[in-house]
Amino acid sequence: MERFKKVIPLLAVALFLVIPLVDDNQYHVYMLNRALINCMVATGLVALTGFAGQMSLGHAAFYGIGAYATALLTVRVGFPVWLGIISAGAICLLVGMVLSLPSFKVSGFYLSLVTISFGNIVWMLIVNWHSLTRGPLGFPGIPSITLGTQPLSRVGFFYVSAVVLGLMTLALYRLSRSYIGRGMKAMSDDEQATETAGIDTKRMKVLVFSLSALYGGIAGGLYAHLSNFLSPESFVFSESANFVAMAVVGGLRSIYGGVVGGLVVTIIPELLRVKGWEIYYLMGSSLAILLLVIMLPSGIAPAVQNVYNRLGARLGIGGSGSGSNGNGSGNGSAAAVRGDSKSGGR
């Protein structure tokens, strides 16, 4: 019976992974690829905002830095693509460390203002630094990912990014169960109490900022090689807002929040792109996301998990609590972390 509960989510993932094999429409596959890339950024934001309680409304900056870094490295320097993406991630990691410095002193709304400013500065640099980025003209001719000698098809790209996203989620899952993850959650609940419990919150902040920047950078690198062309328009402030919206819609406190939110928020506008109603589709999609946030402030993933658990309980399958990992463990307090570290958690 317990096994049955674990089968259904796996089945859902498997069904999702089959889509590009069944659907021939290249545009659909392209949008799925974009959705997976967005999921990566949103997963990074779940770690940053949901677990560690630090707001960022400037993540399009990391996305952009990652994209332009790999574009420049592969086109101008001649790096192979995979090395370009990895270096994009590394560069973003460093920038993320720098951005974590203001968070030592600033929190809440003020931190969101700092990150907005950071995002806008990066965007203006991309637009105005012509010799490096070609500004509003856009950056053309970025090579695709190659497998052996053949360029990777869109379906192939789908599986590559699915694997990357899977690894990212797994890493986050492992992290949330570790000393560091519990420390981060404690920090988001009460920073002073956490420090009193002997946890270095500054280190936590540097760590989580660089982690989510790394996720953003890798996502940006993949995006550059997916679309082969970059324009500054993809990295404006509203893109940052969209990423946070994904994390919130999916569920900030759930590990799967980023994945669910990324898919939902990327697909909603596409569903609303009906012939003859093109001017209304952005209006409709923003309204839909607004309604989702108002109706389900804690996100879709926890809501689905709740319904699922309740159904399971009604059908008499297993206990009700065991399936809700990530969601239930969200209330780690400073004391719990301390107990954990005492008992040899680290």
Binding site: M55, F109, S112, A241, V248, L287, I289, V293, P297
Partner: peptide
């Protein structure tokens, strides 16, 4: 954060 996102989406709308 929910209020921030709701109002951001409102501004896009």
């Amino acid at each position: 954060l929910e209020f921030i996102i709701a109002t951001l989406m409102l501004s896009v709308f």
